[in-house]
Design a protein around this nucleic acid. Structure first.
Lengths: 328, 328
DNA sequence: AGTGGGTCTGAAAACCTTTACATCGCGTTT
DNA sequence: AAACGCGATGTAAAGGTTTTCAGACCCACT
């Protein structure tokens, strides 16, 4: 039924081995023969059986991607980058959503691991030990999390915070609140560390206003705490939380940015759409996906060397939610 | 290196064939033998080689999902539904993003088609002919688009519009504008048709205010046209467009809902977060994904019968963007 | 006692491609 | 002139599973 390499070989008047070579290592076959094979391939509409190829080569041509929650607007951008780069390299992408469940994540990684040549773990939630144990011999790249000795793509939170704080200081703010994400989240710790370093260096007061779910409701919940902290500006763990803050401020008739400036993190598309639009530290989401696949490909070719992690630049997008500090 | 069925067979003292049967058709093997095999499997940590299995069975255990744009907040919900249902049925999901490019879509479907047992096409943008030609013998389900004789999951736009218009009429609105999505979009035509039917039946005036890109900017661009149309309420092609409208209204100090009521379509998560929150026709996104996979599985088992398409219920979510019609 | 049917298991073929090895022919070097 | 090397191609094995077919065994029935 399906057209096989033998059919092509017969039509081109060569052996299956030559067809295979003509397709995978064209330089090892005489130009004339190569052409004959190519014509036969086109005529018959042949395409190699991936299962048969995989059986002998041990490779699948697939990579796996695990994300905590596709509905979180941070991830689609990353996924798109991964997709695009993978397709260029002729890989297909399995996507798995763990629904923020660390144990589901572990089991998913284990089962996906067998079906792919490599894995990208995006903001993995599982513990460090799980992370280490779960890695069989599948090459693996971490995205938005750094763990000793594991290849990873991360964002320069420190740099982002430096820009954010410089911006706020220039506007006259001296007392700045931080609404943290989940305590166990690596990126939350990373951002908080950056913020502490930067505020200390700049001589600003930093008030840490607890930890919330990285969701709109988390921002809503933290808004009143921020007000009580008597800061003139607030940095949120991410944009969604920042939007929750702004929403609650609006409900309490606290003007943003007149009374309070708000800065988010991520630069999700929503942030440019709302009123006031959100000043935020933009992460190169799509680029991070591409970089992750690049690193993974490198790792798959040279499994011995551990691969070079990369930290990607961040940029402050100044929009409507930040303004001069109010006189008190 | 990897543990094969032979290793298991040797350890269990049976033939590879028996191991295979014990795993795939347990009832065809004596209870005692089955247990011995299961123990051997556990001891060795055996899991079947997918490529080898695929080679002989001709099945891959994968399904493919094609979406126009993952960054569009409508799709992640659908993807999650598909994921979840697929995993239950022991399938993995390839996700491909076409970046709204119909020709990329066609070529992607063709190449993906060979690596999967079935495909779900979500809101496909390609022409009907392409759609038909692209289907080899891969089972295929359409989501959010209906084409003659092809199995599809759709949403009850008519019902949604009926609820929306009833709501607006009850609030005293009589002249209603519609901001359309892309003219070529099936769902735009579907929604518009529903709206025409419903307004005609209810005796309301419908003003069709052109077609815009289904993006925030499209809504922004259409806002002034809506005002010029002198309607008291506007229905948008989808939520993102509705948010664009509201944003522009705010910029022009047109109060929503006092001066103008706005209704969206989809119920993306953002809609509940903004101010004013958006009244919208909610589509069961996750359910649609599950239903799509259900239909696909059915189709894969009985490729002869064409499968039963389903239309899913929609519900109006009344929020802050609609209110009584202003006295003129 | 012999036959038939049923249950359980084993042997071996088949799936399609890749690749190590062998072959062949031709040109070049000693 | 013989040997050698090299490029181009063919042969055949290997990869792990599923499945068909057949065999072995046991029980029940005639």
């Amino acid at each position: 039924m399906a057209v096989t390499i033998k059919d092509v070989a017969r039509l081109a008047g060569v052996s299956p081995a030559t067809v295979c070579r003509a397709l995978s290592t064209p330089e090892r076959v005489k130009t004339e023969t190569r052409e004959r094979v190519r014509r036969a391939v086109d005529d018959l509409g042949y395409s190699p059986n991936r299962a048969a190829r995989g059986l002998i080569t041990g490779r699948t041509g697939n990579i796996g991607l695990v994300v905590p929650d596709l509905a979180n607007p941070f991830f689609p951008g990353v996924v798109k980058g991964i997709q695009a780069r993978a397709r260029e390299a002729d890989y297909s992408v399995f996507v798995a959503d763990t629904d923020e469940d660390p144990s589901a994540e572990a089991s998913l990684v284990r089962s996906l691991g067998k079906q792919v040549d490599g894995l990208v773990l995006c903001s993995p939630r599982m513990s460090e030990e799980d992370l280490r144990s779960v890695v069989g011999d599948t090459p693996l790249v971490l995205l938005n999390r750094r763990v000793d000795q594991m290849p990873a793509i991360t964002f320069d939170s420190l740099g982002g915070m430096r820009q954010a704080i410089a911006h706020l200081m220039a506007l006259g703010h001296r007392r700045i609140a931080y609404v943290g994400g989940p305590r166990t989240s690596w990126s939350n710790r990373d951002r908080l560390n950056g913020l502490r370093t930067v505020t200390a260096a700049a001589g600003a007061d930093l008030v840490e206003v607890g930890n919330v779910l990285p969701q709109f409701s988390g921002g809503v919940a933290a808004a009143d705490l921020v007000l009580a902290a008597e800061a003139t500006a607030v940095v949120a763990y991410n944009d969604v939380v920042a939007l929750g803050l702004i929403s609650r401020f609006a409900a309490r008739s606290i003007s943003v940015p007149d009374r309070l400036s708000v800065i988010g993190f991520d630069d999700i598309s929503m942030s440019a759409m709302v009123h006031p639009s959100l000043t935020t530290v933009a992460l190169p989401m799509e680029l991070s996906g591409r970089a992750g696949v690049d690193l993974l490909l490198q790792l798959m070719q040279h499994p011995d060397q551990s691969g070079t992690s990369r930290e990607l630049e961040t940029h402050l997008m100044v929009r409507g939610s930040t303004g001069p500090a109010p006189r008190i």
